[in-house]
Nucleic acid binder design. Structure first.
Lengths: 408, 408
DNA sequence: GGAAATTTGTTGTTCGGATGGACGAAAGGC
DNA sequence: GCCTTTCGTCCATCCGAACAACAAATTTCC
């Protein structure tokens, strides 16, 4: 029972829900599992697993295959369970500061189709962006088999998103404040599907945890470098959200009291040292290229010395994060992955200098295992969440024949 | 299912375990609940609750009472469920830097008996402290009814405690490093009971969440001022532990790069501004009174201006914590509660100045609801944890006739 | 004051779903 | 080619939550 409301009792419906969802979660995570592996993973009886798989098969989400795959020892090979060929899917939206990426993502995490459009600098009116996104959604959904159900839409936003209702409280680089972007997109689409919004760093963390560099790691942090800097925290295997959903705003941790003025109104925030604008200034990159700083850094041919101070600042800041959250893994996403490749030594040294020995000894820095798709795939994962919580209910309310409905 | 291993399925034994534990948790939390309230709280059937209560009664942990208490509407009054008169108990140990407090705590959280002994300054050898603590444990257990089972011992340590095995990695103010204090106490006691160790701030947070200022608040932080400064974090209703159990070490967040040298080897840690030594210096308190700084501050009659900078530093540091964790409540424990009473205005203003608007709007600062017992009661709570996870198993392995066993 | 309404406790039964055993099937090892 | 090992399938079983019916205790209303 991953996230049941605490204090409640467990009735038998809940047991079935949980077990169905857990089987599906395993298939989703591994792509292909044998029934024998499922019995071992879940600690349930052979017969029970068989029954659960049968029900999922009749729901049209998984298929059983002939025994295949690497065999270990003797004995009859176990039947495989894999995702259905024409199964449920979600739409993932990665809203960046300069472009929106929209993808149709199948259960299992494969990007089936993808579309991108630029966003005018400064964000533009939210309804314009919503209209653009809706157009991209129409495009990626068009070719989907009409019998495949759409489970929902997950949207990543570079800013503070209120958990309770998905309101975008503040997205500085889009110049948005208190925007109900989920409702805007739905209105532009003209249909009603479940929509989930979340912060980009939180979604990066989720995706890296499920399918990237952090598989099997229950305490990890994803640092997103996306003009601003934020952190998504997974702890004990679950997302750290905080009271309102704003946890992980590490970009405004104090860093240099005598430092530069930050757009948040304070002085010397970490972001003023390792944010995109600061780095661009350090390497003499024109202001117009700030939004694509990652690409600039990938092709950076200047002296690494110009970035030495930045690397040190990154390491010092990471030390604070390591002390506060004690993660096993820190994934550096966005342009920070490009930066880390250039100044790895400075970052590692600064981290080791400032972090406490105990949390330091078990932490690792790494690049995203999903490249630049972490956030997009994280958006897919939150859209899939209801399916794992209750497969029957989620498929019951899913939208079928989506292409036709959206065409009109 | 509060903390089941993820990925596992739920079998029927687990359901019963969970439901029994949840009933007990409710009785433990409320002291007295009616069966009707339990059905509403847990969402289970009347008959099911009746059966669960019957089983707990036969285990000797709860008793049913005649209908009593405030009645709301019409209808037959519901039977009450309360903790058994002679029920299971735990021993809680609060290891401070200058004294150890040991208490016998009944299920329900009442301190039945308590004993205290000083600890030589600088901590002394761990085995000496262990022997002292064992003596206190003997004393508080002596008068316990011989039929009452001892569930375990919970120990709070002012330092970094490894979650996996309870090893005390570092307790600077006791001058300990890698001390297996649980084993030491058990050896001095000569019996084998479950022992849980944890960091003092984590336990303060736990107790305030369960029985103090944070009842019903699922995202709270307890800041312990106990010579050093640390934070215990509850998020989503569960303890934030991190990979090794060291999460919440906020005392060494960077604060003033040009500041004082910290014992951790860095410069300008938050602790160098709001730690006990810094405050003592600010108000001209002799070094020998640092360990009782809370009492000193309670009787402080000097000019509040001497503490203005400290209050500001506290507020700024709290802003970082609020941005990073987005709590709904921050409880200031230890000497920080005394400090806050003196410079509330400065702290509030500094927090409001540096925290981001979104997380700031929902956060409250408060004093501990449990006074100076937060940490002690938190130690009791971790010792009780196995009981709620599996009442039958925990009571099966509990120790009876404790007085006689410990006398020899 | 009495009857109706309301809510709960109790008891016996039902039912959902996990479990376990028996048996056959499909592989590897010798 | 036979034995061993492991798995799928088909039962019967069993555990425990849910449900229904009735009795009990209290409030409310007339």
């Amino acid at each position: 029972m991953t996230a049941q409301r605490r204090g409640l009792g467990t009735n038998q419906e809940a047991v079935r829900r949980h077990n169905l969802g857990t089987v599906l979660r395993h298939v989703h995570g591994a792509g292909q599992v044998s029934r024998a592996e499922l019995t071992a993973l879940m600690g349930l009886n052979r017969s029970t697993i068989a029954d659960l798989v049968l029900e999922l098969e009749s729901l049209g989400v998984v298929e059983q295959t002939v025994p295949v795959g690497v065999r270990s020892g003797a004995g009859r090979p176990s039947a495989g369970v894999r995702l259905a060929e024409v199964g449920p899917y979600v739409v993932a939206v990665d809203l960046g500061v300069d472009r929106a990426v929209v993808a149709r993502v199948a259960l299992g995490g494969d990007v089936v189709e993808r579309a991108t459009a630029p966003i005018p600098s400064g964000g533009g009116e939210a309804w314009q962006v919503g209209s653009t996104v809706a157009g991209l959604i129409r495009r990626v959904v068009e070719a989907a088999p009409s019998s495949a159900p759409l489970l929902g839409v997950g949207i990543s936003v570079p800013g503070l998103v209120r958990r309770s209702d998905g309101l975008v409280r503040l997205a500085p680089n889009l110049d948005w404040q208190d925007v109900s972007f989920g409702a805007i997109v739905l209105a532009a689409l003209g249909v009603d599907v479940p929509v989930q919004l979340a912060n980009d760093a939180d979604l990066g963390a989720l995706a890296e945890h499920r399918r990237g560099a952090g598989v099997g790691v229950d305490d990890l942090i994803y640092i997103s470098g996306n003009v601003g800097v934020g952190a998504g925290v997974i702890t004990g295997g679950v997302r750290l959200e905080g009271a309102g959903g704003y946890a992980g705003e590490v970009g405004h941790l104090p860093f240099a009291p005598e430092g530069r003025l930050c757009h948040c109104g304070n002085v010397g925030c970490w972001e003023t040292e390792v944010g995109a604008h600061a780095i661009a200034k350090a390497i003499g990159c024109p202001e117009s290229d700030v939004v694509t700083l990652g690409d600039v850094l990938d092709e950076y041919a200047g002296s690494p010395r110009e970035l030495g101070a930045t690397g040190k600042a990154l390491g010092y800041g990471l030390a604070s994060i390591v002390n506060a959250f004690n993660p096993r893994l820190v994934v550096l996403g966005g342009y920070l992955s490009s930066l880390y490749a250039l100044v790895r030594h400075e970052v590692d040294a600064a981290l080791a200098e400032r972090a406490l020995p105990a949390p330091l000894e078990s932490v690792t820095l790494s690049l995203p295992g999903l490249g630049s798709d972490s956030v997009l795939l994280g958006a897919a994962e939150i859209a899939l969440e209801p399916l794992f919580a209750d497969p029957v209910a989620a498929l019951g309310t899913a939208l079928v024949d989506v292409g036709a409905r959206l065409a009109g």
